[in-house]
Computed example of a mutant assay.
Amino acid sequence: MSGNTPLIEVRGLRKHFPIEKSLFGKTTKVLKAVDDVSFHIDSGETFGLVGESGCGKSTTGRSVIRLFDITDGEIRYHGVDLAAMSEKQLKPYRKKMQAIFQDPYSSLNPGMNVLQLVSEPMEIHLDLSRSERRNRVVELLGKVGLKQEHMERYPHEFSGGQRQRISIARAIASNPQFVLCDEPISALDVSVQAQVVNMLEDLQDELGLTYLFIAHDLSMVRHISNRIGVMYLGKLVEVATSEELYARPAHPYTQALLAAIPVPDPRVPFAADRLLQGELPSPMESGVGCKFRTRCPFAFRRCGEEEPELLEIAPGHFAACHLHH
């Protein structure tokens, strides 16, 4: 961890959703979407969060920006815990923490044109006149590669990539410090994905932004992230710098995710033996031991008896695996 206080510090985060209730309203079954997750994000860096669908990565991201109440834990922003704050107490922090989601069409109001969509966060958070807001929208559209004449158009008139650019302009309109990027490119055409990632990196440099970048695909996260956390069934199983994770993946799950990335070279044999075996178990099953053991080719007795802790196995490299402890 760096010497200065991280911008975001998550400690012991838990988010449980009630699934079944008894006749008397008591919760009888709980989905542990996020189960004791801790990490930090330094100012100006990108922390990537990766894992299969249903692993809890989006729930983690949305908890960090307090889109819903959490079950337990701390979410510190500049050292201040947001976890227990009411909506009224959160208001000054809202403009500093913004989000870009996977599907820009569902996050943009179809009845508002681009001028209204991008200026709305300014109306809420910034004290600007109407003409100042309009000038700022023109400036923001330029930053995301759109033209001034796009201002009067509506979301349905744009391509998916252009809509995501509008979402990004809207997210940076209130001068945030932190942006949650929740699978912002996975719904986009492959040819557009790299453009959007490059634009996010340019904006980060220009505006001094800090990102939590969530994806299920390790290959794209590698290019944008300083550090990466790998999630499996509500737990972080590995955290390391981007280079270290690719060069020396320690957790069998991370190794399997990396083996699944196709190599554009027909001479390289496909590592089928390293791919994931079996189905993703239900997050409802709590059980003892390592959650990954049912799909792990290296599982041994201890894996079924005690859950491994996330421990430092090399400087700045953490893994939750009995093979390394």
Results as ranks from 00 to 15, higher is better:
271 A>F: 03
68 F>P: 07
99 A>W: 00
132 E>H: 03
85 M>R: 08
36 D>Y: 00
305 E>F: 07
237 V>A: 07
21 K>N: 01
259 A>C: 06
170 R>M: 08
113 N>H: 09
242 S>N: 14
27 T>E: 06
125 H>N: 11
242 S>A: 15
286 S>H: 05
134 R>N: 11
234 G>T: 10
291 K>P: 01
103 D>A: 13
14 R>D: 14
319 A>L: 05
206 E>N: 13
180 L>K: 00
244 E>R: 06
124 I>N: 05
253 Y>L: 11
26 K>T: 08
25 G>H: 09
44 G>P: 02
282 S>V: 08
217 D>C: 03
251 H>S: 14
208 G>Q: 13
324 H>N: 13
217 D>Q: 12
100 I>S: 04
209 L>R: 02
304 G>F: 11
263 V>E: 12
135 N>K: 14
287 G>P: 01
255 Q>F: 03
201 E>Y: 01
73 G>I: 07
99 A>K: 00
265 D>Y: 03
243 E>N: 13
155 P>G: 05
259 A>D: 01
271 A>P: 14
176 P>Q: 06
129 S>V: 01
70 I>W: 01
276 L>A: 06
150 H>Q: 03
22 S>K: 15
186 S>I: 11
243 E>P: 02
271 A>M: 07
165 R>Q: 11
137 V>T: 07
275 L>A: 08
312 E>C: 08
254 T>H: 07
286 S>D: 11
266 P>T: 12
69 D>K: 09
313 I>K: 00
67 L>F: 11
213 F>G: 04
187 A>K: 02
237 V>C: 14
44 G>Q: 06
243 E>Y: 13
298 F>Y: 15
45 E>W: 04
187 A>E: 12
289 G>Y: 10
265 D>P: 08
170 R>Q: 10
278 G>H: 12
108 L>N: 05
169 A>T: 01
